[in-house]
Design a protein around this nucleic acid. Structure first.
Length: 287
DNA sequence: CGCCAGGCCTTAC
DNA sequence: GTAAGGCATGGC
């Protein structure tokens, strides 16, 4: 059983109910529209501007137009890391990833930004996707004096940009998908932000109505934007990890394997997946 | 040059 | 429902 203040390999003073490793959280690839400036990680939340950085054993933030409860929600600070610790107990691979990536949070990005970003992420490297999304924001979003961050353009704005413009910005063959999806959301045909309280399967299927959104992208949006922290997004990295470390889960359909992995971690599968992903990319899982 | 990247869409069984 | 092929673009 996990005890407050006890995480192997982590200094006791770093273990609190609201601990966060800001660097890990932003670098983990859950959010694509952020700017690093003077040691801060800047982004926009609900039209307001936010910057966060690690400091000492905790973190600090500055915000313009973002209420504190929105900062807490965006950063996932209400999520119970003790629950995650309990969930990974007895699973050496997940335990190690959780310990090494301790403080990595699952954020709640803006739903439209998340949908577009993850459509753009298909068959593209994380760093490249981030650059393309950032370019979209810098060319068509808004900023303020003293900030590097730019807002994510609205669904109506993105829809009006058109395929050619998106292709110029580097979205490649995903441009048409993004235009159609932005149009669907602008018209209210699909409302991602309204799915936060829906049952998982219903929300997943609803997101898949959007062009360019399949099983994996839908799960990423549910996890990194809509607060479904138990959801596992089965990407190439997690598939590789499963092939290597979870032989019993290999060979099923997307739905079967994702559900089997999810069910191992009692409602915290998304936290486990995020830690494993970041660990595989920057850590030492031998990938 | 070929292969791969936080997959998805269309088409053909 | 399942399997193949195509797909923009850049890094290696």
């Amino acid at each position: 059983m996990w005890k407050e203040g006890v995480v192997p390999g982590v200094p006791a003073e770093k273990v609190t109910g609201t601990v966060i490793d800001v660097t890990k959280t932003f670098e983990s690839g859950a959010v694509y529209h952020w700017w690093e400036k003077d040691g801060w990680y800047e982004t926009t939340v609900g039209g307001g501007f936010l910057r966060v950085r690690d400091e000492g054993d905790g973190f600090v933030y500055e915000a313009e137009g973002v209420p504190e409860e929105e900062v807490v929600r965006f950063l996932g600070l209400g999520d119970d890391l003790g629950g995650v610790a309990d969930a990974v107990e007895g699973d050496p691979v997940a335990e190690e990833a959780f310990r090494r990536q301790y403080g990595l949070r699952v954020p709640r990005d803006d739903p439209f930004a998340s949908v577009v970003s993850f459509i753009a992420s298909a068959q593209s490297r994380n760093e490249r996707t981030r650059g393309v999304v950032r370019g979209l924001c810098e060319k068509h979003g808004e900023t303020r004096d003293g900030w590097a961050a730019h807002t994510f353009p609205s669904p109506e704005e993105v829809a009006s940009l058109g395929e050619e413009r998106l292709r110029e910005l580097g979205f490649g063959y995903r441009g048409p998908y993004i235009v159609e999806t932005a149009r669907s959301i602008a018209d209210g045909d699909v409302c991602p932000g309204g799915l936060r309280t829906a049952p998982y399967t219903e929300a997943h299927d609803e997101l898949k109505r959007l062009k360019g959104v399949g099983d994996k992208v839908a799960d990423c949006v549910l996890l990194f934007s809509l607060g479904f922290i138990g959801v596992v997004a089965l990407d190439t990295w997690l598939r590789r990890i499963i092939d290597e470390h979870y032989p019993g889960l290999v060979g099923g359909t997307y739905e079967e394997t994702a559900r089997a992995f999810r069910d191992r971690f009692g409602g915290y599968g998304g936290y486990v997946q995020t830690a494993l992903y970041h660990e595989a990319r920057v850590g030492d899982l031998g990938m």
